[in-house]
Amino acid sequence: MQGGTPAARKVMVVAEPNRESAVALQYALSHAVFEQDELILLHVGNPNSWRNTFSTFLRKPSISSSSHTTCADGSSNGGEVDFLEEMKHACKITQPTLHVRVERVEMEGKDKAGVILFQSMALGVDLIVIGQRRSFSTAILGSRRPGGSMRGLDTAEYLIENSKCTCVGVQKKGQNAGFLLNSKTHKNFWLLA
């Protein structure tokens, strides 16, 4: 830290075309990243899933207002919006000076959480933010299974327990209700928006 400016960090948001991922990005942009940081949007999955309609991102209108979209290279995608590019665009609107990088990784038969952990280490990530959907039974019983077993954990819970860097699972309850955060050291921490 020189001259009062915090050191740049790498913050990774696990990006999916769903509400939980949009909430994780919203939390990261509003509470976790600073202008000198690098934000990495990581999507792990089947390459065929990389193009999706993602028009409800952060409850803001899509960058495409018609059913036919023209890409930056001038090509047309027949109405589909690449959700990762939509997320990157939303980042630039929210924090114009933030450096945003998109990473797409194929699963190739491996488990998703393992691929995310490997990528976080390979990229030197300081913080992982992942959207978390918790069932009622998980919320009551907790994420640990009897005997300390990690078997049956969802991706977010696995990353929280096994990542070398800090990992935060994020949920949003209601429009203006704030965020419910989970990390290795804090469970069900409520952060008002």
Rank of each mutant, 00 (worst) to 15 (best):
Q2L: 10
Q2S: 15
G3Y: 04
G4R: 04
T5K: 12
K10Q: 10
K10P: 01
M12F: 04
V13L: 07
E16K: 10
N18C: 05
E20H: 11
E20R: 04
A24H: 00
L25G: 00
Q26N: 13
Y27C: 07
S30A: 10
S30T: 02
H31T: 01
A32Q: 00
V33H: 02
V33T: 06
F34K: 11
Q36R: 11
D37S: 07
E38M: 14
L39H: 03
G45P: 10
N48G: 12
S49T: 15
T53H: 00
T53S: 00
S55Q: 00
S55N: 03
R59Q: 10
R59H: 10
K60M: 15
S62Y: 01
S64I: 06
S65V: 15
S66D: 07
T69N: 05
C71H: 15
A72Y: 15
D73T: 13
S75A: 11
S75G: 15
N77T: 09
G79K: 00
E80W: 00
V81F: 00
V81L: 00
D82H: 11
D82Y: 10
F83R: 04
F83E: 03
L84C: 09
E85N: 06
E85L: 13
H89M: 09
H89G: 03
C91V: 08
C91D: 01
T94F: 07
Q95K: 15
P96Y: 09
P96L: 11
P96M: 12
T97D: 02
T97W: 10
T97I: 05
H99L: 15
R101W: 07
V102P: 01
V102F: 05
E103V: 08
E103M: 06
R104W: 02
V105R: 09
V105Y: 03
E106G: 14
E106I: 08
M107Q: 15
M107C: 13
D111N: 13
A113F: 11
A113M: 12
A113N: 08
L117N: 06
F118C: 11
S120V: 05
M121A: 14
A122G: 13
A122W: 06
G124P: 07
R133T: 08
S135Q: 13
F136W: 07
S137N: 07
A139Q: 09
A139I: 06
I140K: 02
L141W: 05
L141N: 12
L141K: 07
L141Y: 04
L141A: 13
G142Q: 02
G142M: 03
S143A: 07
R144G: 02
R144N: 06
R145L: 11
P146R: 01
P146C: 00
S149I: 01
S149V: 01
M150D: 07
G152D: 04
G152W: 07
T155H: 06
T155A: 04
T155Y: 04
E157S: 08
E157F: 06
L159T: 02
E161N: 08
N162V: 01
C167Q: 01
G169Q: 03
V170A: 08
Q171H: 10
Q171N: 12
K172W: 12
K172D: 13
G174V: 11
Q175W: 13
N176I: 05
A177K: 13
A177W: 03
A177D: 09
F179E: 08
N182G: 09
N182L: 12
K184I: 03
K184R: 12
T185A: 04
H186K: 05
H186N: 04
K187A: 14
L191C: 08
L192M: 08
L192P: 08
